[in-house]
């Protein structure tokens, strides 16, 4: 069963609807007392990374999350929270994956936010991308991106510059796109996550 870290940042309804369509059971985690009894976790999130980090800190869950030894999937801002720092509000984040979240503005000429379907390049094959072809399209909407890193980037996408579409460090995974909004390919990622070895 998946525990969803529910710290009040964004649209959980779409995520839970996707899990229900896939018949993947889930529960809600609001505080450290709720953390037990799950075999994997999702950290959702949209909006301002600094504000999201502030909310996550208020739940008291950050030290608990850092010590998890079961698969964790951060989605969009939930993924960015896994990194060390975001240029959004110059915010210190959890630092679980020692890379940074940067602003597109000033670095590219294309429009910001990066909105729409973009194809990914799989940099490292892991079970999270089982059955997903290189070049598959996913739905992105974000103004800040996680820098490409040869050690932690699982999949990249290009928007004038290459950035991390998916990252991994140990049990911690993150996807910048929204699997719950990325059609069948996105649902496939959620299914794969629910089947990752624990």
């Amino acid at each position: 069963m998946i525990g969803i870290i529910n710290y009040g940042a964004g649209n959980i309804f779409s995520l839970t609807a996707a899990l229900e369509r896939l018949k993947i059971p889930y529960g809600m985690i609001h505080s450290p007392e709720d953390i037990d009894g799950y075999d994997r976790y999702i950290i959702p999130g949209v909006g301002h990374a600094g504000a999201a980090m502030h909310k996550l800190n208020e739940t008291g869950l950050v030290p608990v999350i850092r010590n998890l030894t079961k698969p964790v999937l951060g989605i969009c801002v939930g993924m960015q929270l896994l990194t060390s720092f975001s240029e959004e509000g110059n915010s210190q984040l959890t630092g679980i994956v020692p890379i940074n979240t940067l602003h597109f503005s000033g670095k590219i000429k294309l429009k910001v936010p990066h909105t729409g379907w973009n194809n990914i390049t799989i940099e490292k094959r892991t079970s999270l991308f089982d059955g997903i072809d290189d070049g598959t399209y996913f739905y992105f909407v974000h103004s800040y991106f996680i820098e490409f890193n040869p050690e932690f980037t699982l999949a990249s996408a290009g928007y004038e510059i290459r950035f991390s579409a998916a990252i991994q460090k140990g049990f911690f995974y993150g996807v910048q796109f929204h699997p719950e909004k990325s059609g069948e390919a996105g649902e496939h990622i959620l299914k794969n996550f629910s089947l990752l070895a624990t």
């Binding site: 996707a18 719950e180 996105g186 649902e187």
Partner: peptide
């Protein structure tokens, strides 16, 4: 939101933050 796995936008009659908040939480 329960049935569709692509993004969608909703418009019409949104006049204040509370209207938008309800729609965000509805998916």
């Amino acid at each position: 939101a329960r049935q569709v796995n692509i993004p969608f936008t909703i418009g019409g009659g949104i006049n204040e933050l509370a209207d938008a908040d309800i729609l965000l939480n509805a998916g």
